[in-house]
């Protein structure tokens, strides 16, 4: 494993820690899109179907379990926890996320590395992850007061994507036959979705003003 990949995984993990900190300690999910969180839970469930079939490494298994457990517990907190769910900004979280699922599934049936159940589900998870951030970005645009933890959460998620691209570039040159068009194209699309957010996030940090996205 190269440094970019490890750094990517760590920022991904950090984003989850930041979000859990907000939900668990502050008991607030204000500014967080439940739709995005539901999509992530579905992404991990579809992608990690091989969890108990294919052993890659202890690191890999533990990380998969962490992402599965954290994504489902975040959804649980936002839906069921009696204090947290009251802070959920339901009125502004209106993205029709169900309409993302079917096209991603259709695309996975058409474009996959191999036409088997697990490979189709893997491709589906890659496509869905690429667009899963959209409800969150829309909600951020509608949120007047984006708190620091929410901004940091999205920033770390975006950083994870950038680092994964660097990891692929590194692997392409160091590992023979490492060609994965599906994850590369989807990953680049996913990262581009963050470009706008990154711009405003860095500007707010540089000018030391509160983060606000133009509507």
């Amino acid at each position: 494993m190269n440094a970019f990949r490890l750094a990517g995984d760590m920022t991904h993990l950090l984003s989850v820690v930041v979000l859990l900190l907000k939900i668990h300690t502050i008991k607030s999910c204000a500014g967080i899109s439940l739709k995005t969180q539901e999509l992530y839970a579905l992404v991990f469930a579809a992608r990690y179907l091989d969890l108990f079939i294919h052993f890659i490494s202890l690191y890999n298994t533990v990380m998969k379990l962490v992402f599965l457990a954290s994504s489902f517990s975040i959804v649980w907190y936002m839906r069921r926890h009696k204090i947290v769910r009251r802070t959920y900004d339901k009125d502004h979280d209106t993205f029709r996320h169900h309409f993302l699922v079917l096209p991603c599934l259709a695309l996975a049936l058409l474009i996959n590395e191999r036409f088997t159940f697990r490979e189709v589900m893997w491709a589906f998870s890659i496509y869905l992850e690429a667009v899963a951030i959209l409800p969150q970005l829309v909600l951020l645009q509608r949120t007047r007061n984006i708190d620091n933890l929410t901004g940091q959460y999205v920033f770390f998620l975006g950083a994870y994507r950038v680092l994964y691209i660097l990891n692929w570039i590194y692997r392409y040159f160091t590992e023979p036959h490492f060609v994965h068009w599906i994850s590369w194209v989807a990953g680049i699309v996913q990262t581009l979705l963050y470009a706008d957010f990154f711009y405003y996030y860095i500007m707010s940090w540089k000018n030391n003003v509160k983060l606000e996205l133009p509507a």
Binding site: R5, D9, H12, D50, H54, I56, S57, N60, M63, K64, F67, E113, R114, E119, W122, Y164, N167, H177, F178, H180, S183
Partner: peptide
Amino acid sequence: MDSSLGHDEL
């Protein structure tokens, strides 16, 4: 190449 080898990423 076994494509499962490619799925070593999270």
